[in-house]
């Protein structure tokens, strides 16, 4: 069986798995963005708190994926929840790091000017600091997305969603006719998903960044 004949017969399954992959990554990145940005906003003014947070997030990042999956199977069982939780944990590092950096790189004179005009702390954050940090935050988001598209493949181990299923199914059936097409299609599809998402986020950055910051 060739790749193309496999695709002809089972394109609906491939499409289904690709969509699942996208959804899982999307949910994980969305979740990590909310949590990561909130954490960064909470600590960025305080050097010591920043250090602590970065150490924690870094440590979480260095734990191997299989260890997480093992632990999560025990805690929450097999399925989407485990897989997405792990992805979100990995996505946290680039997002937290970039948000902290972006917020800290805002020119203090600009923030002072805002304060001097009577802008409240919340106003300063939402109208000045976060918009100015936005390009840096977005590039963290891009890194996180591409990163977890790859990691998501491992999620199939815990019966998670996505293209990993195709690869693992192929690996389990080595020697049979469908093994090579499944592994190939799964791998290539993951690479394509990563490239497409990266491109889309780059486009988003281009169109959503105000002209004054470009």
């Amino acid at each position: 069986m060739t790749v193309s004949s496999y695709l002809q017969r089972r394109w609906d399954v491939v499409l289904q798995l690709t969509l699942e992959h996208l959804i899982a990554v999307g949910i994980a990145v969305g979740f990590a963005t909310v949590v990561g940005v909130l954490l960064a906003v909470a600590v960025y003014r305080n050097d010591r708190a920043v250090t602590v947070l970065l150490v924690v997030v870094n440590t979480l990042f260095t734990v191997p994926a299989l260890a997480y999956f093992g632990a999560l199977i025990v805690l929450v069982g097999l399925g989407w929840t485990s897989a997405i939780t792990v992805l979100a944990i990995y996505a946290l590092l680039p997002i937290v790091r970039n948000t902290v950096t972006g917020l800290r790189e805002v020119d203090p004179a600009i923030v002072r000017a805002a304060t001097g005009m009577g802008m409240s702390r919340f106003g300063r954050l939402t109208r000045v600091e976060l918009p100015l940090a936005y390009p840096v935050i977005l590039s963290g988001l891009r890194v996180a997305t591409v990163l977890i598209v790859g990691i998501a493949a491992i999620g199939a181990y815990v019966a998670g969603p996505g293209l990993g299923e195709l690869i693992f199914s192929g690996l389990g059936a080595l020697g049979t006719a469908r093994a090579i097409p499944e592994i190939t299609i799964g791998t290539v599809a993951i690479v394509l998903v990563a490239l497409v998402l990266d491109g889309l986020l780059a486009l988003l950055g281009r169109f959503s960044t105000p002209r004054g910051l470009r």
Binding site: I110, R112, G118, S120, V128, G212, L213
Partner: peptide, 28 residues
């Protein structure tokens, strides 16, 4: 904050908001 809205302040480094247009800056 209330006090500052009664006093215009021109900071030494000007400190315009780079992500906003001139009109938006002035309208702060």
């Amino acid at each position: 904050d209330q006090l500052r809205r009664r006093m215009g302040y021109v900071i030494q480094q000007i400190g315009l908001f780079p992500h906003q247009t001139i009109a938006q800056n002035i309208a702060t």
